[in-house]
Amino acid sequence: MSPQSHNAEQNNNEKPPVEALPDTTHFGFKQVETDQKVNMVKDVFQSVAAKYDIMNDVMSLGIHRLWKRYTIDCSGVRAGHKVLDLAGGTGDLTAKFSRIVGESGQVVLADINDAMLKVGREKLRDKGIVGNVEYVQANAEELPFPDNSFDIITIAFGLRNVTDKDKALASMYRVLKPGGRLLVLEFSKPTHDMLNKAYDMYSFHVLPKIGQLVANDADSYQYLAESIRMHPEQEVLKEMMENVGFEQTTYTNLTGGIVALHRGFKF
C-alpha cells in the first residue's frame, strides 16, 4: 500500500495543525489510524530498500557517512561490547561496530522491515562481516530482548518513523545495561532561519524529484520530508528521553541542526 498523493492545493512546506483525533497519529503531514502507521512505514521502506544506500549518498551528498562516524565516535564502543543497532537498515553502523567489538563482542542489527534487513545482511556478508552479527526483525516499541542486555544502543534515522516514540524509548531503556548509553541520530530543526528555508526548499521540491529519478518513488521521499517536520525538535526529544529515565542526556547539532545526535545514559 503506497502513501496517498499529496494534496496539490496545500502548501507542501507547512506542518498542518495537529488535531486530537481519537486513535490517529501522523504519517508525514497526514493523519492516519494509529495501528495503520506501522504498516505504512513498512511499505515505504519496502519500496526504497534496494536503493536506500545510493539515495542516502545522493540526498546528503555523502555527509550522512560523517554523521554516522560522529555517532560511533560518541559511542565509546570497545572490544567485547554488545551493541544494538536499531532501525539499522542496511547496516552502515553495524559494519563498523562489528569490527570494533570483535570476536568477544556482538552486534544485533534490528529492523522492523524485512526487505531492509535482507539488503543489510547481503551487504555485510559481501564485506566479510559475519560471525558476531545477529539479524532480528523487531519493532522498537516492543524489543524482544531481556532487560539489561546491551552496552550501547543506536538508532539512526529511525526514531521519527516510530508510532509511539515514548514507548520505544522506554523499551530501549529497559534493554540497556546500567552504565550503557543510547544514541539517537535523527533529522531535527535547523538552528538558523535562512538554513531552515533552504532546507525546506530542498526537502519538498528537490528530494521527491531525486526520489523519482533514482528510486522511481517520489511519494516515499515526500513522506521522508514530511516525517522530518513532524519529529520532535532537539529540546523536546531530550525531555522525552529524560522522562523514561535516561540521565546526563545531551544533544549535539550537526550541519546547522539539520541533524542532531542525542545521547543519554542509564545508571
Partner: peptide, 22 residues
Amino acid sequence: LLFNFSEQVEVGAVIESNEHNQ
C-alpha cells in the same frame, strides 16, 4: 585519534574525554 584494530584499522576522533568511556 583512536585506532581500533581488527582485520583492518578503524580510526576515530576522541570527541571529549568522557568519564564513562572505557
